[in-house]
Simulated scan of single mutants.
Amino acid sequence: MRIRRTLATAALAAAAMLAAGTVAPAQAADATAPAAAPVAVLTHTSLAGPNVSVGDVLTADLVGGTTANFSSSATGTTGIKCATSAFSATVITNPAASGTATESLNTQTFGSCTANVIGVTGVQSITVNNLAYINSVSDAAGFPVSLDPGTAGPVQTTVVLKTILGTITCVYRAPGGLAGTTNNIGQTIGFSAQALPKFSGPSTCFPVGYFTATYGPVRDISVTGNPVVFVN
């Protein structure tokens, strides 16, 4: 009887050890499971949605019904209005929120432009020079944006105007860059009366061009479906 009890006790102990052995690896596996990636400054589809990947291309046209303006004063209506404008930027960094994401502004175009400047009969072209610029997007209060010079030179725009005496070329520069804001309502990025002083050109070119435009929605065209982009 003692032998049988001893064997039974040993069997129960072995079973308990076996059960403990089967539980421990599962617990170890849970402990080593990778943590979810933190929410980045830029996400697509929704707030706190999938993170925008480094290398993704973001694009936007003007918000419907608006124009891109180069005015002769911060509050005036004299200058140039463009019915179309668009940009394309590549994401360089997209850190965890709170932080600042950076992009390379590769293209920015303007079209269907008109002018109400005395002596000017039309707008031949508007060209953004010295690309690529560095676009920084912060999730700080107000969602500030800065458009800073790249390695090719200062932020510069060349405007070619048609006049009654022929074409003239006006070059405007903002050595310190431009400042704007983003908005998760409509997923927009906007600039208001940003000053670009005249670098060269005749007197017909106004001394300072004030740039105003709002682009949106900003979309990640590197993702299927071109989802909109949010700032977290």
Rank of each mutant, 00 (worst) to 15 (best):
A132Y: 05
L131W: 02
D30T: 15
S88R: 08
T66P: 08
K81C: 05
P202D: 07
I185D: 13
T9R: 11
G79H: 04
L196A: 01
L165V: 09
D56H: 14
I189M: 14
T43V: 10
S73P: 00
N106I: 06
S72R: 07
V123N: 06
N184P: 08
V23K: 01
V208R: 02
C113Q: 08
A141K: 04
A195M: 05
I92T: 14
G64R: 09
I126A: 04
A37F: 09
T45D: 11
I189P: 01
R4S: 14
I168P: 08
V23Q: 02
A19P: 02
S73Y: 03
S88H: 01
G49D: 06
T45M: 08
S72Q: 13
T114Y: 03
G166M: 08
S192C: 00
A13R: 03
V41R: 00
A15N: 03
L47D: 05
A174S: 14
A36K: 14
V159C: 10
L165G: 00
K162M: 05
A20V: 07
P154W: 02
Q108W: 13
C82P: 01
A35E: 15
T181L: 08
T9G: 12
V208D: 02
T45H: 12
G65K: 09
N232P: 14
A115F: 05
G209D: 12
T22Q: 10
V52G: 08
D61Q: 15
E103P: 03
T67Q: 12
S72P: 00
V23E: 04
T224P: 05
T102W: 01
I3D: 15
T67G: 01
T9E: 11
A31Y: 10
S125M: 06
V137I: 15
G209R: 09
V52K: 04
A11Q: 00
V218H: 11
G176R: 00
G176T: 06
L12F: 09
K81G: 12
A20F: 12
A96L: 03
I118H: 00
T75D: 11
G21I: 06
G209C: 08
K162I: 09
F230R: 02
F206L: 08
V160M: 12
T77V: 15
T182M: 11
N116A: 02
L178E: 11
A33M: 14
T59G: 07
V218N: 07
G225T: 06
A36Q: 15
L62F: 06
N232L: 04
R2L: 13
G180H: 01
A97E: 12
P207N: 14
T75L: 10
T75V: 14
T59P: 03
I134K: 13
L165R: 00
G153C: 06
A48R: 13
V52T: 13
A33D: 13
S138Y: 07
V223Y: 04
